Simulated scan of single mutants.
Amino acid sequence: MTTELGRLIAHRIALTGPISIADFMTEALGHPRLGYYRRAMPLGAEGDFTTAPEISQMFGELLGAWLADRWLTMGSPASVRLVELGPGRGTLMADALRATRGVPGFHAALDLHLVETSGPLRTAQQTALAAFAPTWHEHFDEVPAGPLLLVANEFFDALPVRQFHRTAEGWRERMVGLAPDGTLRLALAPGLTPFASALADAAPGAEAEFSEAGRALAAAIGARLHQDGGWALIIDYGYDSSTPGSSLQAVRGHRGADILARPGETDLSAHVDFAALAAASGRPTFGPVAQGDFLRRLGILERAHALKRQASPEQGRALDAALARLIAPDQMGTLFRVLAMGDDRSAQPAGFSDTPSDAT
């Protein structure tokens, strides 16, 4: 059983030939009417996945403190674009802004911009952030010029990726085509890929994956930081350095699924290559570091202790569970990485070293 979007993709392939996995992801996630992020509420129990801000208020609070600190190091500009890519239900930003309301002048300087394509999520963000009069955009490049503070939590993992397989003759791209019965299937392109120069040499049988969209966005963010000043913080799951293999996965109803099954109703994501983002940005970068280490350095243990002092025993147990989920190595603490982009004039930002006074 397929979906209306699946039938449209199959019809496109029948007319024009196989498409790349990146093109398939673009359609499956972003089709103007039927794409996953256009039509569904993907977060929470009724959706397909849960993100860190939904686990505990501590996550957004600490990121808010980090952003306010970066504003201060920028010289406290009177106006700054506060941008979140993929803000979910607005939970992270609401927590960040609540935690920073005591920073003199910070809120008065903020001009809030949200990059979001989902109608249902925009509605939730409006409810959570109405007091801050956000402006919404489909793409980052629509954000007006000006000093920038940007956060992207679990955004880059949803950007399209290409996949490749190393044959005896060389690298060939994995494509989405049609099986004899008209259903979608994966197959290798018949010829060698022109992207081979971007791939490391490897033995036959090796797999590779990269995101043109991710690198292009990192470059655009870096260009804005160079032009207007500011900082960007990227949190996602992935690799510190470019790693062979394929990581594209599908999730539906909080369970793994076939990446080609039910397009438009299934979440697709891939591990983020942080080294590639850092290189593409063209800016001084810090990290990536493990999310658990980052949050500990920002004071999450102390914040959890403070919250527990005012909590019931049941609330205390929930806080302990949330804390473990965010920082434990066997949960989100190690797989999720944190990367900052900024300038070469400031000391190393908080969270990236146990000795934050050391500049990098």
Rank of each mutant, 00 (worst) to 15 (best):
T91P: 11
P120C: 11
F164T: 03
L188K: 14
A198H: 14
G177Y: 01
E154A: 01
L85N: 12
A198Y: 15
L82M: 09
V176Q: 05
T127Q: 08
V143I: 09
A196H: 05
V143W: 07
L150K: 06
G146R: 11
A196T: 06
E173I: 13
R166T: 01
A109N: 05
E169D: 14
A108P: 05
Q126G: 03
P144E: 06
P194R: 14
T117D: 01
T127R: 10
A200N: 11
R172N: 00
R89G: 12
P120D: 03
F155P: 14
V143C: 10
G146A: 01
E138M: 08
P160N: 04
D95K: 06
L149I: 00
L92F: 08
A198S: 12
G88C: 07
V161H: 08
F132K: 02
T117S: 09
A131W: 13
L92M: 15
E138R: 06
V176P: 05
A158Y: 02
R101T: 04
D111Y: 00
E173F: 13
F132W: 15
Q125Y: 10
L184M: 08
T123V: 04
A94E: 03
S197G: 11
G88A: 10
P134Y: 01
M93S: 08
L150M: 11
A198N: 08
V161L: 04
R172M: 00
S197T: 13
R122N: 10
H107G: 05
N153I: 02
S197D: 13
E138T: 03
A179D: 03
P160D: 04
S118C: 09
V83H: 12
A187T: 15
G177T: 13
E169I: 03
A109T: 08
F164V: 06
A124R: 06
A198M: 13
L199R: 01
P190H: 07
L149P: 08
E154T: 01
G86T: 13
G86M: 11
L85V: 03
R101D: 10
R166Q: 13
R172K: 08
Q163R: 15
A202R: 14
F140L: 12
L178A: 02
P87I: 00
Q163T: 04
H107V: 10
A109S: 11
R98P: 05
H107S: 04
G90P: 08
A152D: 14
L188T: 15
W171I: 06
A189I: 08
A131Y: 09
V161A: 03
G191A: 11
E169F: 10
G177S: 13
G86S: 05
L85S: 07
P147C: 04
P87Y: 04
P147Q: 06
A189R: 12
A94N: 00
S197I: 09
G86K: 09
A189E: 05
F132D: 01
L114I: 01
